[in-house]
Amino acid sequence: MSTALAIPSLAPGAVTALAARHARASEEAACLHREVAAALPATGFARHFVPSRWGGRAGGFAELVGAVAAVGEACASTAWCCALLAGHARLAAHLPERAQAELWADSPDTAIAAAVVPPSGRLTRAPGGWRLTGRWAWASGVEHADWVLLATLDEQPAGPPAYRILLLPRRDIRVHRTWDSIGLRGTGSHTVTVDDAFVPRHRSCLRDILMTGVPEADAAPCHRVPYTLVAPLLFCAPALGAARGALDAWTTLVRERGASGESGAPHTLARCSADVDAAALLLEAAARRADQAALTPPAAFAPETTARNGRDASVAVDLLTGAVGQLFRTAGMRALTPESPLQRAWRDIHVVGAHASLRPEPAAAAYAAMAFRA
């Protein structure tokens, strides 16, 4: 009988109450409240995709989407940071073994921030690695991170530059508090700069491996799928939670003002709740496809799965945005106050929907190219 300890599952409840309590304070500070940030290690998000040899879960995508959405019902900014804690660790699992040991030898709960799209900065070769200087925007959660992944172009003697991902300790990064968005304000997606920092060779990998997955046969399933297959799921999951939270807030407001029987209220409730449920079904199906693809040998991976997942995530965020918009329009003046979770959800979900990975036009084009080719 094995004596290994069971690795606990994701625990979104460890942070949801705090996230709800401090949502407005996180917005005002443009980063997660310190109590919320301090509670994140207990949730298991940071270790969800960490390889098991470092004490991580090497977990699945369906479980993660559900857990992120659960946090999003309380605070979409916290949910966004939870999704990226997991997602950035999955990216870091593509780094060489030595870099992984630096990240996780002491704990699988290391917090990693990232700014990998688009590449930026200037890279120059140095003995044993490179020197990096530059400026990167939208590094969500960077103020609470231990390490940061940054992307830059590595000029080659011949041919096009290589798209390189580099890992730097937080001490090599300077944070500029530039994040002032209409929504997801608590994510602290600030700009970072690096001034001639040395990056050893083992703290780097090419983006190509993120697009194909870890090639080793013994890699965990969650590390063998391409970034483009799963990124839309992770970015859309906070919107699902925000929409569910908005639906609850709207129902409470309508009930409190005694308007549940008014003309239009039943139709709004039925239609918006159905749209939220439909979006959830799309994301759940996409997450199941991702988990199934993770069990498939890389050589047998079907690119059509990526096109379907991109389609479903972009349609899901459209459904969620439309539902929350209808709820907001019909909720009355009390929904407009700064402390209203409904107006915060309305702002947050529009920012989620603006993310490049959820844009409908590229998703539709990729799906159509696959469908028409067949």
Score class of each variant (00 low, 15 high):
D172I: 02
W179F: 13
W179H: 15
T178S: 15
V199T: 09
D180K: 14
R174K: 11
V175Y: 01
T187W: 02
R177W: 01
H190K: 01
V199E: 06
P200C: 12
T193D: 14
D195C: 05
F198A: 13
S189W: 00
G186F: 01
R177H: 14
S189K: 05
L184T: 04
V194I: 15
R171E: 14
I182M: 10
H190V: 08
G183R: 06
R170I: 14
D195R: 15
S181F: 03
P169F: 04
R171V: 07
R170C: 12
A197I: 09
L184C: 06
P169V: 04
V194R: 07
T178D: 12
V199F: 08
W179C: 10
V192C: 10
R174H: 11
R170K: 08
P169K: 05
D172M: 11
I173S: 05
G188K: 03
R185E: 11
R174Y: 00
P200S: 15
S189D: 06
I173T: 07
H190Y: 06
P200A: 12
T178A: 09
W179S: 13
T191A: 14
G183N: 07
D180T: 05
I173V: 15
T191W: 03
R177N: 09
I182T: 11
H176L: 15
W179M: 09
D172Y: 00
T193C: 14
R174N: 11
D180W: 10
F198R: 13
R174C: 03
R170T: 02
G183K: 07
D195P: 01
V175T: 14
I182A: 14
G183I: 02
H190M: 08
T187L: 04
V192Q: 02
G188Y: 03
T178C: 04
W179E: 02
G186T: 00
F198T: 04
V199N: 09
T191F: 08
D196S: 15
A197W: 07
G188V: 02
R174V: 07
I182D: 13
